[in-house]
Design a protein around this nucleic acid. Structure first.
Length: 722
DNA sequence: AATTCTATCATTTTT
DNA sequence: TGATAGAATT
């Protein structure tokens, strides 16, 4: 087991006295070290499974670790304490909900739920959303919680903050009243529960002999305190991190925790793992060159024993379409050349960039899979049903009540709900109970609603059966059957929800299945995260790609303003984080790396021109091969010369009304499309900028090198692809 | 109260 | 550009 480790890895795995910080570069075998160490602790140091606590940030990482460990040890996965900060906190809170001051069936609020509750609070306080936006309030509250601060522990600084504190206080009251816990609250509540209840704290301090933390550079203040509380007494804290891959400071991650850790846990000599087993030297050199531009680094340099490999390919397209077509063609030829087993990923800065690739891959028959974007458990139809379930579990859950009381429409408009809220306030009851006190038409309709809930509640069904029943009895199914737009798709998703429930194995049989399922739905809402070595082309953001590797990687949208994103131009620190993001992107590639950018791109409905990303310029020239046809004439000069690249949409020839992006030539069976390099007998080589159909006349606007723009009739002009 | 229309926001990233 | 929330209309 230990034989396959290098010197650094071995000393990390078998580190045996006190705490340790491992600086693990990209591709240096971090996960291997963590999992091998857990196995080593149990096998060689005779620790019991439950005496090891391993914390990660993502569900994916937790699953991977659990999988690798349980394949080497004959243990039951559930006996191990491996999970995300949030899931471990949930586990603690579920077990000790009384000490934490929570009802047994407390529920988790996701970001959306939290925001809509805050909106309602702001409205109820008669404040103007323009001046006190719910998003800002959400940020404020989460930030305070991340610093361990409750509303009553903060001294307001100015009138505005006083207002926010009032709102924060109101939010706390409602959450406590209705048994709701947001993401940050999971951590803060478990931290407080342990701090206040020394006997509970002692249980876990005694139990966890070793604590391991993955992606340590991503810990925020609260998480660090949480770790310290649990781990300072055992003295065996093992943290693995890479300051160069810190890309979550926007949600409170503090790289400085790495320095603090050295001090707090008396680590004098952190272990550096700098040998990279993933990428070719060319790729590594590019990554090193880029990250070297950052000032705030602990500092390390990756190296490899591999031999050179391909240069990095740079393609500069005219438009995002051009970019996408290039990627499609390149992937097709990669697949055709027998590399069908190789893994391919498209990485981008923002989710919105995936659309054009999806469209193109779909029409071109390239198998693909998109990660991120709208998640399964975030879809409105799924959230409706989950709210019904929440209400069945806890009738006091006013938030869930408000979401579905009039879904489908039951004649309960804003007036009716307002009245109900007044009654509830007066009698100091939940909205659900207040339904009995409501009279008139609204009262009848409300009774119908509560009857549905109660009727379902009285049957004791298995989880999948319960969900099927809710879908039907609530009338949601009928509502979507009548919805011609996308009702069918939504019904399908609800079917999938039933399947998800069928597959769901309650983590803890003792606990209520439904409650566990609901927590699971909120906490692990990801639609199955990306995998390494999957067959179809994988599309995801750079953030989502952290921790993964692919043979071939296309980084697209490398324009200044997009990547690095313009929101990050305001400070050196933000720009350095973008640079780390680029570093993460590059180091995902094992064998072949493509960098792409578009001279102009459709964004928010407008066509924007942007210069090439500064990060591309930070890579030494000798590592890059520019393979764009337009490179000779220079892309930026093209944009400046005012070529109209507007209003291009990927429409097939079959639609003559609109401008088209590809066309089959009449005189041969070649297809040419926007972005193609073509050859003309008189004008030489040029690039197709746009295609038009006007009646039977098909024209192409082509930019010929050294000549300029020409409009050619494709029925007459002889053109061939190069 | 339900339907239709309009305005606005988003597209930086996530447990 | 496209989804969604809130306004305006029926």
């Amino acid at each position: 087991m230990l034989a396959s480790l290098n010197q650094k890895q071995l000393s990390a795995v078998t580190h045996n006295n006190g705490s340790m910080l491992v600086l693990a570069g990209a591709g240096s075998g971090k996960t291997k070290v963590l999992t091998t160490r857990i196995v080593w602790l149990i096998n060689e140091q005779n620790l019991k499974e439950h005496e090891v606590l391993a914390v990660t940030f993502s569900n994916k990482a937790a699953k991977e670790m659990l999988h690798r460990v349980s394949s080497k040890l004959s243990i039951t996965a559930r006996s191990m304490w491996i999970g995300t900060f949030h899931s471990i906190s949930l586990r603690l809170l579920t077990k000790h909900h009384k000490e934490a001051g929570l009802p047994a069936y407390f529920q988790i609020l996701d970001v959306q739920d939290q925001l809509s509750l805050l909106k309602r609070i702001i409205k109820a306080a008669n404040l103007d959303e323009d001046h006190y936006s719910s998003r800002e309030l959400q940020k404020f509250i989460n930030h305070q919680k991340e610093h361990g601060l409750r509303a009553n522990q903060i001294t307001p600084n100015g009138m505005r903050q006083q207002t926010w504190l009032d709102l924060y206080l109101e939010y706390e009251l409602i959450c406590n009243r209705d048994g709701l816990v947001d993401f940050t609250e999971l951590l803060l509540r478990s931290y407080e529960m342990l701090s206040v209840n020394k006997d509970v704290l002692d249980i876990y301090r005694n139990q966890f002999k070793h604590i391991l933390v993955d992606e340590f550079q991503d810990t925020n203040h609260l998480q660090y305190q949480w770790l310290k509380l649990l781990g300072s007494s055992c003295g065996n804290m093992f943290a693995v991190g890479d300051d160069d891959q810190s890309i979550y400071s926007f949600r409170g991650a503090r790289v400085a925790n790495m320095q603090t850790f050295l001090h707090d846990f008396s680590v004098n000599d952190p272990i550096r793992m700098e040998q990279n087993y993933r990428s070719t030297p060319n790729i590594l050199s590019a990554a090193n060159a880029i990250i070297d531009k950052n000032n705030e680094r602990i500092g390390k340099t990756l190296w490899t024993q591999k031999s050179d490999g391909d240069k990095i390919s740079l393609y500069e397209g005219y438009t995002e379409e051009d970019e996408a077509y290039f990627v499609t063609d390149e992937i097709k030829s990669l697949l055709a050349s027998g590399k069908s087993t190789s893994s391919i990923a498209i990485l981008y800065r923002s989710n919105a960039q995936s659309r054009i690739f999806e469209q193109l891959f779909y029409s071109e028959g390239v198998p693909y899979k998109v990660y991120g974007g709208l998640r399964f458990f975030d879809r409105q139809e799924v959230k409706h049903i989950l709210s019904y379930l929440r209400l069945i579990l806890n009738k006091n859950d006013n938030e869930a009540f408000l979401r579905v009381v009039n879904v489908p429409a039951r004649g309960l408009g804003s007036k009716a709900i307002e009245n109900l809220q007044n009654i509830a306030k007066e009698k100091n009851t939940s909205l659900f109970e207040a339904c009995n006190l409501s009279d008139g038409k609204a009262g009848i309709n409300l009774a119908k609603f509560t009857n549905i809930i109660q009727k379902i509640d009285q049957k004791h069904l298995s989880l999948p059966d319960l969900i099927s029943l809710v879908v039907e009895e609530s009338g949601v199914a009928e509502m979507y059957r009548l919805d011609k737009k996308n009702g069918a798709e939504r019904l399908e998703n609800l079917n999938e929800l039933v399947s998800a429930a069928t597959n769901f194995k309650a983590e803890d049989e003792v606990n209520n299945n439904l409650a566990t399922f609901l927590s699971h739905a909120v906490l692990e809402s990801g639609e199955g995260q990306a995998q390494m070595y999957e067959q179809p082309v994988q599309l995801m953001t750079v953030h989502a790609a952290k921790g993964l590797e692919f043979d071939t990687v296309f980084i697209v949208g490398l324009e200044d303003g997009l990547f690095p994103h313009e929101n990050c131009f305001d400070s050196q620190q933000n720009l350095e984080e973008e640079r780390r993001l680029m570093y993460v992107a590059i180091t995902r590639a094992c064998k072949k790396l493509y960098l792409l950018r578009a001279c102009s791109r459709l964004m928010w409905g407008k066509r924007i021109s942007a210069p090439v990303s500064r990060f591309v310029n930070e890579i030494p020239n000798e590592l890059i091969l520019n393979i764009s046809g337009i490179s000779k004439i220079g892309c930026s000069s093209l944009v400046d010369s005012d070529i109209d690249l507007h209003h291009l949409t990927p429409t097939e020839v079959s639609n003559p009304e609109t401008k088209i992006s590809r066309v089959t030539l009449a005189n041969c069976d070649e297809i040419i499309k926007i972005g193609d390099m073509v050859k003309h007998a008189k004008f030489g080589n040029g690039k197709v900028l746009r295609l038009n159909i006007d009646g039977k006349k098909i024209t192409a606007e082509i930019f010929f090198i050294g000549i300029g723009k020409k409009n050619l009739d494709l029925n007459i002009a002889k053109i061939e692809k190069v």
